[in-house]
Design a protein around this nucleic acid. Sequence first.
DNA 1: CCTTTAATTGAACACTGTTTAATATGGCAA
DNA 2: TTGCCATATTAAACAGTGTTCAATTAAAGG
Lengths: 200, 200
Amino acid sequence: MARRNQHTKDEIQQLSLQALEALLYEHNHEAISTRMVAKAIGYTVGTLYTVFKHQADMLLHVNARTMDRMFLHCQRGISDSNTAEHNLTLMALSYHQFALQEPNHWNLVFSLRLPENEPLPQWQQANIDRIFHLLEYELARLSPETSPQSIQKNARILWSGVHGMTTLSLNNKLFIEGITDVETLLTNLVHQLVLTWSGA
Amino acid sequence: MARRNQHTKDEIQQLSLQALEALLYEHNHEAISTRMVAKAIGYTVGTLYTVFKHQADMLLHVNARTMDRMFLHCQRGISDSNTAEHNLTLMALSYHQFALQEPNHWNLVFSLRLPENEPLPQWQQANIDRIFHLLEYELARLSPETSPQSIQKNARILWSGVHGMTTLSLNNKLFIEGITDVETLLTNLVHQLVLTWSGA
DNA sequence: CCTTTAATTGAACACTGTTTAATATGGCAA
DNA sequence: TTGCCATATTAAACAGTGTTCAATTAAAGG
């Protein structure tokens, strides 16, 4: 069977990404092979290599979609009619919730290592910047007289905290026996940082 | 060549771990195979499996040693004659510095996934607790009247932040073009959290 | 010295990512 | 309609992976 022309290259790429995403709900990315993805879309590995440079390239494309979904998820419920602290708390909780809902997708975003000399694509940085802008917007609303540099700095401090809690709790490296849950910890973190930044 | 009795099982295990650690200075753990380790110590893969249950088991042992080293490193310069904030800042900077010095060892600690139904061993939790105790000690010194529960909670908030910054900066996911460095950010984080916790 | 015991190996198994020659079909020109 | 060409697709190959296990070989014990 050759030259069946059933799908365009673009369609094959989309099918692959969808199939891979579906597999990630069941298996973590280290357990997923190129042949599994190929089989899932009814093609052979060779075909995948006409559409992606290599496996890492395919995973990178999945990561792009994951970050898009995460970005949307983190905007849920955000509104200018809320206080800045409320919005920041919502974002933090959403970030953590997304990681819980799609742990394998989320893990892949932060554990993918590209082959040497492969630069990480510019849209990756753009995606990260997009999330930071959400935070910076709220931080500016919180204390309008703070300099843009400080706002950028504080956004990074805040995101690091939220991200760290999410990583550690996802890997059970955070808790002794049933102390407070992560949601409480996240709310606390946001509250305490907001307190010092709101000029209190 | 069989039954040469050149090394005891214990010695073979130690040799393996040392060889693996040496390899980690050059390659990240995904690029290291059991056969590479075996060759480095002058044995065959089969021998490794008389000493470790599986590859993940071997990596877990390396992680134990890495955490020991990290624990010692994080105590560098700590002294009761320093302020609590100073000690906490030292620890945060040491934590980050250690990750920079041994990125592959450090990565392995947080990215190793055990096979299903393999419980993470109890010394792992003990090692984590040990680090938390260092933090809790300083936090108690900072505000003696705070309840033990709150101290535990705050230690986790603080460590999450430090860990998050370290992870993200190690993967270049934290910075736009040359803003402030991670050290400054870490110092800031500690300072701001300490401010709210010292009852100011 | 000869047998038992166990440390060590080498080969096998089923998999992995990646490359490439061979193939078979859809579309086009005559 | 026929025949050819371009190319989408595959099957097979390669060098590697983790893991297991029968076979081997040497040390130790009687």
